[in-house]
Structure formats: C-alpha cells, structure tokens
Design a protein around this nucleic acid. Structure first.
Length: 122
DNA sequence: GTGATGACTCAGG
DNA sequence: GCCTGAGCCATCA
C-alpha cells in the first residue's frame, strides 16, 4: 500500500473525499439531478464545488460506475457532458432516466433537483 | 515548494 | 441581464 496516492487506478478509491462524493452521487435517485454545490455542501465543503467536479472527472474511471450524469452545475447545465466520451452521452443517459434535457440543460431542473442535505435529512 | 488547472459558485459593476 | 473577477480546495507537472 505504498502507491495508494497513484489515484483511483481501477476500483481503488481510497480518497475519503472522492469516496464521499461518489457515495452521495450514487444515492441520487433515478430521474433526479443534483448540483456540485449541493454535494459539496452536504460534505461540509460548500466552497469546494470545484473539488466535487474534479472527483466526477474520475468518476467514470472507477467502479462501480457513478451516475455522474445526474450531477450538473447550479444552472442545471450539463457542463461535464463533454467528459462522457460523447457529445450527447450525458444527455442520452439523463433522457433515458426520464430527465428531459434541452440545449444541454436539464428541463424543469428546479423540480428534479435533489438536494442530499435535504433528502438525506442533512 | 510553486504554479497551473479544473465537470463550480458568489458577488460586484 | 450579462460579463468579470475573485474565492475556494485538491491534484498534477
């Protein structure tokens, strides 16, 4: 266990922060979406939304797969769709779950918004 | 150890 | 209402 710092190589996510984020994201119900800020806030790092985003960049590289498509920015915009390997991969995934996406933006975002700090009981 | 980058967010003009 | 700047934290070169 010397090179644990090498990063989430395959299924090794030892980073507490990373694992925390993954855990929260995986708790997002199907058909719902959340924001980086909400996750960060739930983790106690409301000002670390960027870190959450960084974790998501690695989210699709680990197992089990994380529904990162359910995580969007505060605007409900699919900022990270470009990281899914396809220009519409993220959108397709969301639409497959019942979340309508238009112009790279979640339709009725406010209604489908899922706040871990609230849904999980804070 | 410093600098740069990043799937963000908020405040100010 | 839109654009700009700054803050924030973690990782990598």
């Amino acid at each position: 266990m010397a090179k644990k710092k090498q990063i989430i190589h395959d299924a090794v996510q030892e980073r507490d922060f990373f694992r925390d984020v993954m855990d929260v994201v995986r708790q997002v119900p199907r058909g719902r979406v959340t924001s980086y800020g909400a996750i960060a806030k739930y983790l106690g790092a409301a000002r670390s939304a960027r870190i959450v985003g960084w974790c998501m960049s690695n989210a699709h590289t680990v197992r089990p797969l994380v529904p990162a498509q359910r995580v969007v920015n505060r605007n409900g915009l699919l900022t990270g769709k470009h990281h899914f390997g396809g220009p519409t991969a993220m959108q397709d995934l969301l639409e497959a779950e019942g979340v309508r996406v238009k112009d790279d933006q979640v339709v009725d975002f406010a209604r489908k918004f899922w706040d871990p700090s609230v849904e999980l009981g804070f």
